[in-house]
Design a protein around this nucleic acid. Sequence first.
RNA 1: GCUACAAGCCAGGCUAUCGUCCCGAUCUAAUCGGGAAGGAAAGUCCGGACAGCACAGAGCAAUGCACCGGUAAAGAGCCGGGUUCCGCUUCUCUUUAGACGGAAGCGGAAACAGACAGUGCCACAGAAAAUAACUAUCCCGAUGCAAAUCGGGACAAAGGUGAAAACGUAGGGUAAGAGCCUACGGCUUAUGAUGGUAACAUCAUUCGCGGGUAAACCUUGCAUGCUGAAAUGCCACGUAUAGUACCGCCUGAGAACUGCUCGUUCGAGGUACAGGGUAGGCAGAUUGAUUCCGAUAGGUAACUUUCGGAACAGAUAAAUGAUAGCCACUUUCUCUCAUCAUUGCGACUCAGAGCGCAGCGAAGAGGAAGCAACAGAAUCCGGCUUACCGGCUUGUAGCUUUU
RNA 2: GGAUGAAUAGCUCAACGGCAGAGCGUCCCGUUGUUAGCGGGAGGGCUGAAAGUUCGAAUCUUUCUUCAUCCG
Length: 129
Amino acid sequence: MAKQFTLGKNERLKSRKSIEQLFSEGKKIVVAPYRVLYILNPSVEKASLLFSVGVSAKNFKKAVDRNRVKRLTREAYRLQKNDLQKKTKAKRIQLNVFFIYTGKELPEYDEVYKKVGLVLNKLDKITGE
RNA sequence: GCUACAAGCCAGGCUAUCGUCCCGAUCUAAUCGGGAAGGAAAGUCCGGACAGCACAGAGCAAUGCACCGGUAAAGAGCCGGGUUCCGCUUCUCUUUAGACGGAAGCGGAAACAGACAGUGCCACAGAAAAUAACUAUCCCGAUGCAAAUCGGGACAAAGGUGAAAACGUAGGGUAAGAGCCUACGGCUUAUGAUGGUAACAUCAUUCGCGGGUAAACCUUGCAUGCUGAAAUGCCACGUAUAGUACCGCCUGAGAACUGCUCGUUCGAGGUACAGGGUAGGCAGAUUGAUUCCGAUAGGUAACUUUCGGAACAGAUAAAUGAUAGCCACUUUCUCUCAUCAUUGCGACUCAGAGCGCAGCGAAGAGGAAGCAACAGAAUCCGGCUUACCGGCUUGUAGCUUUU
RNA sequence: GGAUGAAUAGCUCAACGGCAGAGCGUCCCGUUGUUAGCGGGAGGGCUGAAAGUUCGAAUCUUUCUUCAUCCG
């Protein structure tokens, strides 16, 4: 049986081009400290769910704090994204997601876990439609 | 033992579950094995390595550095020395006693070439901020009894204001003054001698004595080609061999010599606007002037020679993490007092030690809280600067206790 | 990653090394039946921070802090 809770290179959004497309054409969800951009590409042969995180250097001056926020977000996403991934595979669509942390204070892990779960639920409903 | 300061070192550990990146193996999609942040990885303030472009030559400009020697690949770093200044201590001079002054020792600081190459600036105050002028002083002449006034001269630092005032003291000199002259002292230029690799120090002779500011322009000496890994090389993909305006095709637009000019060379296309395409991969790139430890030899030291051993991450929308537990650590609370130290009371005693009771602390047991400071590699090194909870070691100073 | 520049009153900006100022805004008074406007007046600054040079620093130098711009 394959592992479930992975987050390797092929599950992360890495292409500069698709990120720019996401920022120019993508839709937006806002959940408390997060602003989430996403885009659905139904006509792709390889069904996938790609993910990425960003934190503004204006809100967090120190690289340590930025890394901390990104790591927590990534961890929360990794543990909760499975249902959504199955759905995209079943429906044969590509979903690109970009999380932007807009809060100004360092979050706790529990809070991050809940908020990311909320976002994933919303995305789940959207893909279901 | 405590406190303060300075320097150096360390920068929690283990286990479980779920994960990230790189390398290797099996071997074809997953498993196994190994490895994965710092003393500052930071600021980008200096210096290099490395890479690309350029490099017949001359001049100008620009920038940087600035006591001497060493060290090093190099430096505005480091080490040692010199000079100047500051602080402390001791001695000395003088004195009723001190202060100032002198000498020695210890410690610290300095962007520490030049203000007789030139130019500029120095608010307020002050006669004047550097050429002089004004007031005052003195002499001569005129008027006048005189005081004084006017005219002509003499020179010069007396004018107490300022951050800063024209070498200081004494004497001579003079009509009155003045380094005008002399003696002593101070500073300074040049030359010589001695010591030192040198900066410099000491001595002798000599020229002088008009402030500060070069982190004002500047002068002198030395150095510097420009640009920085988003550098640069290669591969792949893709578009518009198209549009508008201006200049030019040897009577030459423009380009290169990457700051500018001369000069030299090339030269038929160039510039601007609008628009279109790509933004993937590989190399550069992680082991090198490397770092640490031990020994050895040289040196006052920084540092270096030789030998042996150990260690060293490589991401690229960007890895090194999350959760839980335990142990350490810190703070705090409760209990115990057999052990150690100490305070009070009591009995004994000439007195003390020791003894008994009580309190407090160390220590031990248990509980609670905190989970660490500063901070995250982005081509790589040597420094500097800045940030930093706590702990350990060494040194210095002060206080207390015991001997 | 690298390279530049800036910081002065609440805001926008001035100011040869010699007393920090203007416009807008704020407050008060007057004018008006009231408001706006107009007129008169007042307050507001350790010149981002700390050292240094200088007799004297917003200005010159160095080190920090914050903000902004540029690059293939």
